[in-house]
Simulated scan of single mutants.
Amino acid sequence: MPAQNEAIFPANRHALYEQHRYSAAIRSGDLVFVSGQVGSRDDGSPEPDFKKQVALAFDNMKAVLQAAGCTTDHIVDVTTFHTDPESQFGDVMEVRNTMFNTAPYPNWTAVGVNWLAGFDFEIKVIARAPAA
């Protein structure tokens, strides 16, 4: 029998989901696959201040996790995308360290990219949902 996938959206669904036709997350069994979250404001536009953009991306990711009944403690895998990793990494790590400050830490892969649709940072995660 095929797995039943459930679309997850945070309470304040921003314009990017509708505009680009994707789900904020998909729950498949006890795994929650969160789509790449960017530092978008409510209207979907990029936050121009980089450090605030990173913090907003993390906040958007946390909102999606919360909608799925998860917290950052349930994250097992993180992938981040950076338009200028060398100059941005300090700010990213500063924000990251406020989110993940207790071991065991999730897996983490950071990828340098040259385009993020007007954004400079994106984070996607996989979490294991707590038992109901």
Rank of each mutant, 00 (worst) to 15 (best):
F119M: 06
A117Q: 10
V113W: 06
F58D: 03
Q37V: 02
S87M: 02
Q88F: 08
A68W: 00
P46E: 05
F50L: 15
D59P: 00
V113T: 13
V34K: 00
V111G: 01
I126M: 13
T109L: 12
H82P: 10
E6D: 04
P104K: 10
E122F: 01
D30T: 07
A57M: 04
C70F: 07
D73R: 12
V95L: 07
A117M: 11
P10H: 03
M61D: 03
R13P: 06
P46A: 05
G39W: 09
K124C: 15
P130E: 01
S87H: 11
S23V: 05
Q66V: 05
V95W: 01
D77Q: 09
F33R: 01
A67T: 07
R27S: 05
L56I: 08
A15T: 15
P85D: 11
R27A: 12
E122R: 03
P106Q: 07
I75L: 07
T102S: 11
R13E: 13
S28K: 05
G29R: 01
D120S: 14
S28F: 00
A63F: 00
A11V: 12
N60E: 11
F121Y: 15
K52G: 02
E86L: 12
F58R: 00
D59V: 08
V38L: 13
T80P: 03
A110F: 05
D84L: 11
A103Q: 13
M1V: 08
P2V: 05
R96L: 10
E47D: 07
D120Y: 09
N114Y: 09
G112V: 00
N101E: 02
Q19C: 02
Q4S: 11
